[in-house]
């Protein structure tokens, strides 16, 4: 599918385009604060900027910068960041068919983030899934990196995203996008099991691990008889 048809789909579905725009705007502000925090902790301006372009995964970036800024071992910081990002393997298998081949697959893989995956998941048909994934991924890449660069340049005077409630906006975004899928009983049961596992283990384990352990919740879905599976 050509990029033009993705653009056309987003132009036709104003609501989807607006929703994506809102999420990108909120993430730009979080990026602003990420850049400012990193520089405020004494890290050079290029570090949060390069990190955002090369890694492009908010949670892992915060973990990495936190460990480096506190004088942590770089190997440990890399491993901690990787652990937070392992979940993308599952995302990749789920949205892999939306990416195409060649350079599209390379670019499409790089913009695979929680938001683009969740937006794709919430769409009713393949055309809109593809448009939502690419639209959100590409726009978010731009917004996030501009935000981080601006925040790192401006420095510490940037406002606290928590004061704007943006720390509540991120989970609310994902929840709103995932909720339609949770109306299916088996999926809801699997998710509830996963959530319970993640919450029970989170106080004791390194960031990233509890979310991976939550995958054990899928066993609930495995137990479901074959005949009930929607084709």
């Amino acid at each position: 599918m050509a990029m033009r048809s993705i653009y056309r789909t987003l132009r036709a579905d104003r609501e989807l385009a607006r929703d994506i725009g809102l999420v990108c705007l909120a993430d730009a502000v979080v990026g602003l604060s990420f850049g400012a925090i990193a520089v405020g902790e004494g890290l050079p301006l290029w570090l949060p900027t390069l990190l955002s372009v090369v890694v492009f995964a908010g949670a892992a970036q915060f973990v990495f910068v936190g460990l480096i800024a506190s004088g942590g071992n770089p190997v440990a910081a890399v491993l901690a960041g990787l652990l937070v990002n392992v979940r993308h393997v599952v995302f990749g298998f789920t949205v892999g068919d939306l990416l195409g081949r060649g350079w599209r697959r390379l670019a499409g893989s790089h913009v695979m983030v929680d938001e683009s995956v969740a937006f794709a998941l919430a769409q009713p048909d393949p055309a809109r899934r593809r448009a939502a994934y690419w639209g959100c991924g590409v726009l978010l890449f731009g917004c996030w990196n501009l935000g981080v660069l601006a925040g790192a340049s401006i420095g510490t005077v940037v406002g606290d995203p928590a004061a704007l409630g943006l720390d509540a906006a991120f989970p609310a975004v994902l929840l709103a996008l995932v909720l339609p899928a949770l109306r299916d009983r088996t999926t809801a049961l699997a998710a509830a099991t996963g959530v319970a596992i993640a919450l029970a283990t989170a106080p004791f384990l390194q960031a990233g691990l509890p979310v991976l352990l939550a995958l054990a919740g899928v066993v609930v879905a495995l137990a479901r008889p074959r005949a009930e599976v929607p084709a």
Partner: peptide, 11 residues
């Protein structure tokens, strides 16, 4: 389902 479980745990 696995993707939904991951996103729900993240939420």
């Amino acid at each position: 389902v696995a993707t939904v479980v991951l996103l729900a745990a993240l939420v």
